[in-house]
Design a protein around this nucleic acid. Sequence first.
DNA 1: CGAGAGGTTGAGCAATCTCAACGGGGGTGG
DNA 2: CCACCCCCGTTGAGATTGCTCAACCTCTCG
Lengths: 239, 239
Amino acid sequence: MSERPDVATFCGGAQVRCDLCMVRDTAICSVLSASELARLTRIARSVHATPGHTLFHEGDPAEDVFTVVEGVVQLYKLLEDGRRQIVGFLVAGDFIGLAFGNHYVYSAEAVTATRLCAFRRAPFIVLLGEYPHLEQNLLARASTELAASHEHMLVLGRKSAKERVATFLLRFAERRGVPPGERLDLPMGRLEIADYLGLTIETVSRTFTVLRREGLIRLEGRSSVRILDPSRLAAIAGL
Amino acid sequence: MSERPDVATFCGGAQVRCDLCMVRDTAICSVLSASELARLTRIARSVHATPGHTLFHEGDPAEDVFTVVEGVVQLYKLLEDGRRQIVGFLVAGDFIGLAFGNHYVYSAEAVTATRLCAFRRAPFIVLLGEYPHLEQNLLARASTELAASHEHMLVLGRKSAKERVATFLLRFAERRGVPPGERLDLPMGRLEIADYLGLTIETVSRTFTVLRREGLIRLEGRSSVRILDPSRLAAIAGL
DNA sequence: CGAGAGGTTGAGCAATCTCAACGGGGGTGG
DNA sequence: CCACCCCCGTTGAGATTGCTCAACCTCTCG
């Protein structure tokens, strides 16, 4: 599940591009020089994970930080009795490790087949201090994540089941860049959606059914949706 | 409510110390030189707010970032129909403005009489780019806040009313540095606690009563508590 | 000392959860 | 290639937690 990469593999290769380096407008490596990239590469390795594979557990010593290259990863926290709160779904371009002290503060698990870049944490932090652009990029990411966390608190603390599911569908479609009417793949199961929204499987399922009956969405297979009426859905979501 | 300060007033004066400069081990100015401090001072002003005073609303253009010098500030988000989620209570030493784009993403309101340092945002961001220590400090703060947000998601998404109130009491006591058995002042009302915990006033009140009857806490006046049995309370909180 | 805001308590209700049964689609093995 | 199985999702009925509405109480402050 772990292998030695070379620079090209994850920092600019034609097929496979580590998003820490070259993905989107939040690119990190785009602000780094070749020699800086090379240093980054020396502390990196490529990681593959299959669905359900745990990258690390809450409380483990934080040895690595990660970048998601491909696939979907979920971050979650558990209570003693097994209740779970998923605090976020990460997709290509997202960074894991912003919020760490010396131990992971949540667990991370692959939802789909996933490819990541792992960087050893200690030297990564050193690099951070030397490359201000890198640090600025991470601060910007942290700000964005913080704002997303706040919005999710509103969802969890104050929205009804229907509002939660509507919010989830719109936000997830947005994040995946799927325009209304297009098929939106939901790589996670109902249990994951429930644990993300602070609901039960059954309530999520029932709510999907309600939205379908009202003509707001169409369910295609068990893991795809089409948003038919984005504006009415947004009105329900409170967005 | 706003006045011109000088450096001494909020960046090292004997009586009044802006925590952006000198509070705790998360101090910012402790890593800045005298000339850097002087530049910071030029874009700063001192702000006083009385209880209930709104510093800014969600959606307003983000013209300033703040540091809380004294008092308690609450950050919250609203839904159209008035439902409110308080996303955090800030105390002396906390920074407001980490998560901003060009508009505030939440509203901020003084809970108690409050003194803050306000920095004009645009030049502050310029300084950020020039003083890596400042940026590192903010990144560390952002990480801490992010972890706190995640924990609060677990509270809002998965904990019962009793667990929520227990968690709140322990965390708030911890943050204020009040040891078990000591009188803990709750500067916010039941409505604010409810809107922070995703509950109603009545449920918060009933839950306080339950905890009191079980001998876990003592209520003193309407706005003070004493934690009598921290370990049992922690067990309930799931900490 | 009086008034009013804020807090507490009670009764009934509604949303969501729990427990349980059923269904169907995809994967696998024959 | 087909059939079976099993996981996952859906649906239903009843239980429960927390909410709503309403009355009452008690600090606190003027």
